[in-house]
């Protein structure tokens, strides 16, 4: 298979990348290439130019700055899954990445920036970023901008990103306390993409506590964009977590959803996606809760 011809430009800095994007009508950013190259090989995408951003050092690294964790846009799935900092401060993110398929070969090169920029409804990051209240940091001719994930993704494979902009980093607010994460996913067997993926971000005081200080749960794959499960969150937030409450919260998962927006396609009918939601929500929350002992209310 051969892609069409294109010219290749290696950007040295974010500024340079933006300039390169501005000079071509139909330029695309090349990061890990795991989303882009297969499409170009099928000649479904035929950009005139590719701007390779992988040499830009400022897009790398995962670090803590005051009250946010900054994940450089070029961070690979592998780096994120292995990040001790993320496991500590936003565990839902590495937990999610563990469910991304394609094997280590994909994890070694595919990036978080490319994943969120492609905004494919079967991709996994969006739910985790939504649940953690992350901002997508975007740079373009007009400078830097922070866009909440919920605004960044407009629909299936569609974002607010302009053609001359790039994702430079993702910022996750740090919460103080014992933050726990879980991710449960029903895969489509061929592509490995999500039919339903549930990301759970829970905050407790410490690793014994069962009082849920905050609960943010988002589902991807279910609709064109990831959505928060408000009803489930409300059943948990500020409450003592009990087995009954956990189940009731999962049972309620679809009650705050617009069921007409649920995807209905060959991978799964809308009905079936909704059927999978409750058990996946349970699994995800349980993973986040982990070993702590839950007592039944009497």
């Amino acid at each position: 298979m051969h892609t069409e011809q294109f010219s290749y430009h290696r950007a040295e800095s974010v500024k340079h990348a933006v300039e390169l994007l501005e000079t071509s009508d139909d330029a695309r950013i090349l990061a890990g290439g795991q989303g882009l190259i297969p499409l170009m090989k099928k000649r479904e995408l035929t950009p005139d130019a590719l701007v390779d951003i992988t040499q830009i050092d400022e897009l790398r690294g995962i670090e803590r700055t005051d009250d946010t964790i900054r994940i450089g846009g070029l961070s690979t799935h592998r780096e994120i899954a292995d990040s001790a900092l993320l496991k500590e401060t936003a565990p839902v993110v590495p937990r999610t990445v563990a469910h991304i398929t394609g094997g280590q070969q994909v994890h070694n090169v595919a990036t978080i920036g490319g994943n969120i920029a492609r905004a494919h409804p079967g991709y996994d990051y969006e739910g985790a970023l939504l649940s953690t209240g992350s901002q997508i940091v975007v740079s373009g001719p007009a400078g830097k901008q922070r866009v909440p994930v919920s605004e960044f993704v407009r629909g299936p494979c569609s974002t607010t990103l302009a053609e001359t902009q790039l994702v430079t980093s993702i910022e996750i607010p740090v919460l103080s306390g014992d933050r726990r994460g879980g991710y449960a996913k029903k895969k489509e067997p061929a592509s490995g993409n999500a039919i339903v993926g549930v990301a759970t971000d829970l905050l407790f005081d410490d690793d014994q506590s069962t009082l849920v200080k905050s609960a943010r749960i988002a589902v991807n794959g279910l609709q064109g964009c990831a959505v928060r499960l408000d009803a489930t969150e409300n059943r948990l937030e500020g409450k003592q977590l009990t087995p009954d409450r956990l189940e009731a919260a999962a049972d309620d998962a679809s009650s705050s959803l617009d069921s007409s927006a649920v995807l209905d396609n060959k991978k799964a009918s809308a009905e079936y996606r909704l059927c999978l939601l409750e058990p996946q929500v349970q699994k995800s929350i349980r993973q986040a809760v982990g070993e702590r002992t839950l007592y039944s209310q009497t």
Binding site: G35, P38, L39, K42, H120, P121, G122, P156, C157, E188, P189, A190, S191, G192, N193, N265, K266, K267
Partner: peptide
Amino acid sequence: APLRDETLGSSGGYTVPKAEH
């Protein structure tokens, strides 16, 4: 035709069973 397909609404590709299956 494709063993993996990201086309929106597609079945996702022709599934050749994987080790995990």
